[in-house]
Simulated scan of single mutants.
Amino acid sequence: MLDPQGPLPPEIYWRRRALAVGVLVVVLAVIIGLIFWVTSDGGGKNTANSTDLSGTPSYALPSAYSDPSASASGVPGVSGGSGGGGEVAAPGESPAAGEPGIPGGTPAGETPQPVPASGLCPDQNISVVLYTDKPAYTEGEQPIFTIAVTNAGLSECTRDVGKAMQSVTVLNLAGDRRIWASGDCAPVEGVNNQLLKPGQQVKDTIDWSGTTSTPGCETVRQPVAPGSYQAVARIGEKPSAPITFNVNRPAAQ
Rank of each mutant, 00 (worst) to 15 (best):
D3M: 10
P4G: 11
Q5N: 14
G6H: 09
P7H: 09
P9Y: 09
R16F: 15
R17V: 02
A18V: 04
V21E: 14
V25N: 00
V26Q: 15
V27L: 14
A29C: 13
V30M: 10
I32D: 14
G33E: 09
I35K: 15
I35G: 15
I35L: 13
W37G: 13
V38F: 12
T39I: 14
S40T: 14
S40C: 11
D41C: 00
G43P: 07
G43C: 08
G43L: 12
G44T: 10
G44M: 08
N46P: 06
N46R: 13
N49V: 11
N49M: 12
S54D: 09
P57F: 01
Y59P: 00
A60D: 15
A64W: 07
S69Q: 07
S69M: 08
V75D: 02
G77L: 08
G80V: 10
G80P: 05
G81I: 04
E87T: 11
V88C: 00
A89N: 09
P91N: 10
E93T: 13
E93H: 09
P95R: 14
P95D: 06
A96N: 04
E99L: 06
E99G: 00
E99S: 05
P100A: 13
T106M: 02
A108N: 14
G109K: 11
V115E: 01
P122A: 03
P122R: 01
Q124W: 04
Q124C: 06
S127Y: 05
V128C: 08
V128M: 03
V129M: 05
Y131I: 02
D133H: 06
K134V: 00
P135C: 06
Y137Q: 07
Y137H: 05
T138I: 09
G140P: 00
G140V: 01
I144R: 15
T146N: 02
L154F: 05
E156W: 02
C157F: 01
T158V: 15
R159I: 11
D160L: 08
V161I: 07
V161Y: 01
G162F: 02
V168H: 08
T169M: 10
L171D: 08
L173W: 03
A174E: 03
G175N: 08
I179V: 10
A181M: 06
A181L: 07
A181H: 13
D184E: 08
A186E: 11
E189H: 01
G190C: 07
V191S: 09
L196K: 02
K197Y: 05
Q201L: 02
K203V: 03
D204Q: 11
T205Y: 00
G210C: 07
G210T: 11
T211K: 15
T211H: 12
T211R: 13
S213P: 07
S213L: 06
P215A: 05
E218P: 01
T219H: 01
P223V: 04
V224C: 03
V224P: 01
P226L: 07
P226T: 13
G227Y: 04
G227R: 05
S228L: 10
Y229T: 08
Q230Y: 03
G236Q: 08
E237T: 13
P239Y: 03
P239H: 04
S240H: 06
I243Q: 03
T244D: 14
N246C: 01
N246K: 12
V247C: 00
V247K: 00
V247F: 02
N248G: 00
N248L: 08
P250I: 05
